[in-house]
Design a protein around this nucleic acid. Sequence first.
DNA 1: AACAGCTTAGAGAGCGCTCCCACATTTATG
DNA 2: CATAAATGTGGGAGCGCTCTCTAAGCTGTT
Lengths: 331, 331
Amino acid sequence: MKRPTLEAVAARAGVSRATVSRVVNGQTTVAPHIRDTVLRAVEELGYVPNSAARSLVTQRTDSVALVVSEPPTRVFSEDPLFATVIRSASVELEAADKQVVLMLAGSAKSHARVERYIAGGHVDGVMLISMHGADPLPAAIARMRVPVVSYGRPAVPIDIPYVDNDNIGGASAAVRHLVSLGRRRIATIAGPLDMIGGQDRLAGYRRVVGDSDARSIVAVGDFTRESGAVAMRQLLRDDPQLDAVFVANDLMAVGALQALRQAGRRVPDDVAVVGFDDIEAAKYTDPPLTTIRHPVAEQASTMVRLLLGLFHTGTAEPVILPTELIIRDSA
Amino acid sequence: MKRPTLEAVAARAGVSRATVSRVVNGQTTVAPHIRDTVLRAVEELGYVPNSAARSLVTQRTDSVALVVSEPPTRVFSEDPLFATVIRSASVELEAADKQVVLMLAGSAKSHARVERYIAGGHVDGVMLISMHGADPLPAAIARMRVPVVSYGRPAVPIDIPYVDNDNIGGASAAVRHLVSLGRRRIATIAGPLDMIGGQDRLAGYRRVVGDSDARSIVAVGDFTRESGAVAMRQLLRDDPQLDAVFVANDLMAVGALQALRQAGRRVPDDVAVVGFDDIEAAKYTDPPLTTIRHPVAEQASTMVRLLLGLFHTGTAEPVILPTELIIRDSA
DNA sequence: AACAGCTTAGAGAGCGCTCCCACATTTATG
DNA sequence: CATAAATGTGGGAGCGCTCTCTAAGCTGTT
């Protein structure tokens, strides 16, 4: 009742193990009629190659690790980003016949585990999702001689290929939109500054506000809804006259919208609001949220292609994907 | 520059391969001082066992597949459930030193792929997330002689262990709450009836409404926000006098709330609303949503423990986890 | 002091596969 | 028609590990 081996298929087809191996691996140097015989034997026996044996000799595993180096915070599971990235990356990897090994590296203990696993050569490559600058894992993995790509620009300047969206450009576009609406007291609720996304979106805001005659007013949140509300209340205290706010992600924007309503401000009449991410919920806020859309799924699939390219050519260049301003009713 | 093998460690420690293997695998039949010497050699060389070689001989892989047999719909990625399940299951599996291989089986093609992979003995066990009754995958996997557990009761009656929440009990509690509030025209927006969750929650509703003198009014949605709004509008047409509605998930409840507002109904004064799931957004609706909470993370970790138990004892019994009524302002 | 009974280390086979090399065919070329 | 060059197939080694079997070294008993 055990699984058939190459040997068994060879015996059944009346050929050698080597020939079966050739057929199974799609080599063309096998005579067509033998090929057919072998394939029939494979079919009849329900043969499936033993991946352990294959890996042992080829030194490949045909699997890649998707390492999520992030403490399991509420943000992350509430955020639809995670599911989308995983799904999109999986689909793309499946097309390339690679297995996805998911590894969560939220704690120091799991960090060690992940490092050992990767150092052990159990995967052909690594896709890394790490958002925080203080995270030592990207550097650690980059030191090993394993192909690795990053989802998002690494927060510390290490030389690994990455795919990011144009955070700076997107934030700039958001603020330009507010300026074009005639707003002059444009605040921002920035994300955590130890995250690249937080930094870059703030930089984009600063760039445009600095170029205009508008005043810059900054509050910092942590990408959660609640922090958005808190930051918004603070901004209103700091400058009751503000007429616009660029919020570094939609989740915080939802909180900000709520805070504005509680403070009796009308959106967009009194205060215009632009978010970032274009999450599903952005369509359903009151009023629907004007925001910056970035292609999460495409970012993930591009990351996969980058990694596959790395396997074949040995090099890969970073990719920055464009963002898009989605105008709804909040600005 | 290649990775050290057992052989290398053995040479360095001045012992045989077998002894190193014993030490690495934690056998106690090794003299302490030899053990220390070996461990030092392991440390110095940075030895990590080659899992392919190990699997080849042990016939174990120390990895399990997490199979998500669901078309990649919007619902699924919008739903925080997915991320929570994956995270919780991963944490639990890591504790048991198992690898998580994530497989999406949304299409017929990927079905075949997953089946081949599992039949190939590449994983020690399977955790299956499948919601739709028509899904052939659970049965297909159950036929293979691979340990498998299901997240949620399988929609077709096949004999595999599962962990589910008490959908019927939860729905009953929701409706009883509405009855206790004095509501007598209690409608429901059911989920898709090809999903166990949809069926059971409707059954729970029916059971309580049938026992009371309340009328039963049913509309069916597909667990999306939009379908909730559509269903709510239909219910209002069918029975403009309805004074309560039990919605089979929170996402639809959010849509229903929106539809009620548009129809000029006050919640909970005119119509009381109870949802199901207690997603994050339920706290932030207007008014905050009364709902049934079920322990998603616990369900996932229990599923893992069930699978691990299956490895050791060969059997596992289904588990039903209790739900909890969370009373907010909508009912 | 001799031997049984135990503990601990090493030798060696073999898991299922790929791939190099040798060899047997067939086909092209002078 | 002889020989060279392709072309296709089989033999066999070996990937790194575990595990059984055997042997060697102890201890303790009579």
